[in-house]
Amino acid sequence: MTRQNKRIQKLNTIEKKQSTTPRVKKVSDNIFEKFRAYLELHAQALFSSLGKLLKTPLTSVMTIMVLAISIALASSFYLLLNNAEQLTGKLEASNQISLFLKSNVSDLDGLKLADKIKQFAEIKMVDLITKDSALAEFRDYSGFGSALNALESNPLPTVIQVIPKNSLERSEDILQLVADLERLKEVDIAQMDMQWVYKLQSMMNLAEQGVILLSIILSFAVVFIMGNTIRLELEDRRDEVLIAKLVGATHAFIQRPFLYTGFWFGFFAGVMAWLIVMVMMLILKSPMERLSELYDHNYEVLFLNFSESLILLLISSSLGVLGSWGVLHYQLKQMKLE
């Protein structure tokens, strides 16, 4: 404030020198000056609330940490989910469908069918397993070799393995494809080998909804913590508020510095939360990469990117302002001028 005084003094002396300026100019100067005064009120509130925050560092840091942990929880769940989705997304691409042909269909007819299926728009690759090669494989793996030799004919069906295109991502589309394939007259059973991927995917959907719900709950926590902080602050500066009210301050005027306080708390909590999430992800980075090696994918651990970081700050600042606003709106109405 004292700096402001000096500035006013300086302006005053300047003004005295310019007092010969014509009257018309004065009017527009006045409007301009009022607008500038308004902007300066905002700037003043912005910086003085920051100053007040820094004056009580311990209290501020503790509040900011509580807010930051809530925000970090929500954003790390979000990030982990994103990473998990990336992983399952890759798994999905490797799913395939096995078509067990009817036993009366010969290997040759199977081959023809495979060629036909290959022409389908949704199909990437087709692989034919003849009855003989299936039997040979079975003999190798099952250990029933000699028992199988006793069979007069080969009981195994011809199998066509179908790999759909990557673009086929949604499980409904794949299910549709399976149903279509099963309707072919040579096909006995069409079976997805990677049905668990879809189970996983629906689990992921559930997790996604869980994360959204959790984020909403944690946002409420932030709003309430912020509200309580501002309530205490208001209590602290009660005299100041009452005097301002008595000399004709509007609620907007009284609220302004408190809203900026809320903004700063939210902003710093956002920055802190960002740091917490980043450290967490750095710790998890190598185990996650090891995990991805198992699936032999070139899997990249996702961090918060630039726009996500920006959104994080935006949301946390807004929550700070929102919590403050709610309490101010209520408390200022309740406040008795005594």
């Binding site: 005084n5 003004e15 000056e33 009022k34 005064a37 005299d239 009452l242 301050a249 509007t250």
Partner: peptide
């Protein structure tokens, strides 16, 4: 009902600040 943590100038200026007057005024 003066603000003890503000100068005399700021105390007297308060109603004008509230009304949105500029520095010079």
């Amino acid at each position: 009902k003066l603000l003890t943590d503000r100068t005399v100038f700021d105390n007297v200026a308060l109603p004008l600040v509230i009304s949105g007057y500029g520095h010079q005024e």
